[in-house]
């Protein structure tokens, strides 16, 4: 379960103070698939990075399974990111000179998993996101945008996190692969009880989530959704 309490993040831009996240509060039960929609620059990415402990809030708190992130020292935050969070970045943020498999293996290496085990799991995950086998050992900078997106998702899943934060996960994918990713995320939340929070412009994706939030000028509002339809899983 993730509880967000009166979260505020301000930036000083010259003599102006901007508030991309202004007093945001919500609670997500474990295993929920939720989406945040909003215009560009509405603060969606900032909110996501606060939840993922990549950034620290100006005020307010994020409580994950009863543990507050606000008072946590940096080393603990790193551990939280490694163990509990899977982050899919808008710009993928993969290590360009490493192969796809090596990139997926990185979080497992930091978690201390044995080499053989993490290699096997990395290959399985890449299969799951439908990256063809002969591209597993290809360097990231030799992969297309859509392929990199899938490697980034596989990396986010590496340590079986409780919370996956995805920034436009289907933005660079064709419709078919995008659908597959949506099914995959949906299945994860249902079968592995993983909480998934997706920032998206993709109506199709937003419509398939359990809960839908809209961020406007730093304020979060929840939109009513229809009961979740069963999504076939192809993986």
């Amino acid at each position: 379960m993730i509880e967000v309490k009166n979260l505020v993040r301000t930036f000083n831009s010259g003599d102006r103070t901007i508030k991309p996240v202004n007093d945001v509060s919500f609670v997500l039960e474990q295993g929920t698939l939720a989406s945040i929609v909003g215009k560009s620059g509405s603060g969606k990415s900032t909110l996501l990075s606060l939840l993922g402990a990549l950034d620290k809030p100006t005020s307010g708190d994020v409580v994950v399974n009863g543990v507050s992130l606000a008072g946590m020292p940096d080393a603990k935050l790193t551990e939280y990111r490694r163990r509990d969070i899977g982050f899919v970045f808008q710009q993928f943020n993969l290590i360009p000179n490493l192969s796809a498999v090596d990139n997926v293996m990185l979080p497992m290496e930091f978690a201390g998993m044995r080499k053989a085990a993490r290699q096997q799991r990395a290959k399985d995950l890449l299969e799951q996101v439908q990256l063809v086998q002969d591209k597993h050992d290809r360097r990231i900078n030799r992969l297309s945008g859509g392929e990199q997106q899938r490697v980034a998702i596989a990396r986010a899943l590496a340590n079986e996190p409780k919370l996956i934060l995805a920034d436009e996960p289907t933005g660079n994918l064709d419709e078919q692969t995008g659908d597959h990713i949506i099914s995959l995320l949906s299945a994860l939340s249902r079968d592995h009880n993983t909480t998934i929070l997706v920032v998206t412009h993709d109506r199709a994706l937003a419509n398939k989530t359990d809960r839908r939030f809209r961020l406007q000028q730093g304020k979060l509002t929840e939109e009513p959704v229809r009961p979740r339809a069963a999504v076939p899983v192809t993986a």
Partner: peptide
């Protein structure tokens, strides 16, 4: 710098 940020984001300890 960016690579260091990525490594940190996916949970690399400072000593690594």
């Amino acid at each position: 710098r960016r690579e260091i940020g990525v490594l940190k984001a996916i949970g690399a300890p400072n000593r690594t």
